[in-house]
């Protein structure tokens, strides 16, 4: 668990973008940028994922899908909104079918700017997200430790009685 940040698994979903950002996300995985050298793996299964990379301004039909994917991911998790549309709806903001940004549906930790976002920016975003992921993991293990100790103390108190 301590090395989660050394090999985060990424889930990518396109929530109504122009797919410009999506192909840049995929470009990160291929030889020129090759994020796999940092241990980052792209997975198709939300239950395997630590990081949700999500693009686009979210439309009505995507809203439940985005929520569902987010809820299926185990804690700790981080969400990265890639591109201008994911941040605010971008150029599509005024379209009748656009909710306007990922944060209208699920909490977002890191915003990557750009239209389309460049692979270098996306990698920077992921690195930033990893420190947030690590903080969350520490807090969770800390909380688990506190609970464990409380349970232990209670058990000891019970024995001595």
């Amino acid at each position: 668990m301590a090395f989660l940040k050394r090999s985060p698994w990424i889930l990518h979903y396109d929530a109504s973008s122009c797919n410009g950002c999506d192909i840049e996300v995929l470009a990160c995985l291929t030889p020129l940028y090759d994020v796999e050298r940092f241990g980052i793996i792209n997975t198709g299964n939300p239950k395997h994922a630590d990081v949700l990379l999500i693009t686009g301004g979210v439309n009505e039909q995507n809203r439940p899908v985005v929520k569902n994917l987010y809820e299926q991911m185990p804690e700790p998790k981080v969400v990265i909104a890639v591109g201008a549309c994911a941040a605010t709806g971008g150029i599509f903001r005024e379209c009748y079918n656009i909710v306007g940004g990922i944060d209208k549906v699920i909490p977002v930790d890191v915003y990557v700017p750009g239209c389309a976002a460049r692979p270098e920016q996306i990698i920077d975003g992921v690195v930033k997200a990893l420190s947030i992921l690590e903080e969350r993991r520490e807090r969770m293990t800390g909380e688990a430790q506190v609970q464990e100790e409380a349970r232990h103390d209670a058990a000891e108190a019970g024995e001595s009685r």
Partner: peptide, 8 residues
């Protein structure tokens, strides 16, 4: 097409 507003 499932739209937020029907028949936009």
């Amino acid at each position: 097409f499932k739209t937020a507003e029907k028949f936009p």
